[in-house]
Amino acid sequence: MDRNFARALSLVLKHEGGWSDHPADPGGATMKGVTLANFRRYVKPNATKDDLRKITNEQVASVYRRFYWEAVHGAELPDGVDYAVFDFAVNSGPGRAAKYLQGVVGVAQDGRIGPATLAAVRAKPHAAVIHDLCDRRMAFLRGLKTFGTFGKGWSSRVAGVRSEALKIAAPNTGEVIAPKPITRKPDETNPSPPAAEPAKGLAFWLQLIGKAIAALFSKKGH
């Protein structure tokens, strides 16, 4: 059952936006994230860019379902994980998204999600899978030559995916899901003050006075 497809698609489309034909984008012309190549493959074989601009919502959903959601077995993945993998597939390809998910759960990275992958995913805490997948996705994106051009947008997108995926996962797992903790270095310019020296008690002072008196009598004896 595709319980989360509509919600996941609406979140993906917020990142994909409308028309794009950036010369640095290897995907070429896209409308709502649908490339001209995929539009021709799933909707209209001889489509032009103008045809792509006029794509309907039903056609958009059909392309996303067939080319991305079904390719990563979105309907069989746990809540939240399904969206994180789906968005990764849309942004970087279903095969890569599948391989990175397989790397997270420790199964063979063949790029095809099957029973072994699904079982391994279900066996791990869903929040951990989401965090690890998003971390690996960002590492991949930072290594791309086009990160300088698209990096700010990609970083924002993955941060949004992480947050929304955790929200989807939380109500259905019983897990206590929190944002990933941020590790900070100590503030070297404002170090913590040294611990106060313990106060000296009455016994200390009596001992000190006793030593002084003993020393005085010792001198008189000489």
Rank of each mutant, 00 (worst) to 15 (best):
F5I: 02
R122W: 02
K44G: 04
R162W: 03
D50E: 15
R65N: 12
F86G: 09
G18W: 12
F39N: 14
V81K: 11
T30H: 11
R7K: 14
N91C: 10
F88T: 06
V129A: 07
Y42F: 15
K167Y: 06
L52I: 03
A203F: 13
K200T: 08
K54G: 01
F86A: 08
W69M: 12
D25H: 05
V63G: 07
M1F: 15
E175P: 00
Y68P: 13
W69F: 15
V161T: 15
A128L: 01
D21W: 04
V105R: 05
P186M: 11
P193N: 03
S62A: 11
F88M: 02
D25G: 04
V34A: 15
P78S: 13
K185F: 14
G17P: 01
K99I: 02
E58N: 09
G103N: 11
L11Y: 10
D132F: 01
V43Y: 00
A170V: 02
L77A: 05
G201F: 00
L141V: 14
G111Q: 10
A212C: 11
D79G: 02
A196F: 13
L133V: 02
I213C: 02
G80S: 04
R142A: 10
I55H: 06
D25V: 12
L52Q: 07
K180Y: 08
L36D: 13
G93T: 10
A123M: 06
P171V: 07
L77D: 00
P186A: 15
A123I: 05
A75H: 14
D25L: 07
D110R: 04
A71H: 01
A178R: 01
S163G: 01
T149R: 04
K185Y: 12
N46I: 08
P78G: 12
K54V: 06
G143M: 06
K180Q: 03
K220Q: 09
A89Q: 01
D21Q: 10
A89M: 07
Y64L: 12
S163N: 03
D135A: 07
K152C: 03
V12G: 03
V161M: 13
Q102L: 11
A75G: 09
I182T: 11
V105T: 12
D110C: 04
F5Y: 09
K185R: 13
N4Y: 06
V34F: 11
G174T: 09
A203K: 14
K211F: 13
G95Y: 05
K180G: 02
K220M: 10
Q102R: 12
G174W: 08
L13Q: 00
N91R: 07
A24R: 10
G114H: 14
G106H: 07
G17V: 06
G210T: 13
A165K: 00
R41M: 15
G103F: 04
G80I: 02
A108E: 14
E70G: 07
W205E: 09
K145N: 12
S10G: 04
R53G: 06
Y100S: 04
A195P: 10
F39T: 14
D82K: 01
P194L: 12
V72W: 05
P115I: 06
P78H: 14
K124P: 00
Y100E: 08
E188P: 00
I113G: 05
P194N: 03
E188L: 15
F147N: 02
L36A: 14
P125N: 00
A178Y: 01
G153R: 09
S62N: 05
A108H: 09
R122D: 01
G106N: 06
S10W: 00
V105K: 00
L77V: 08
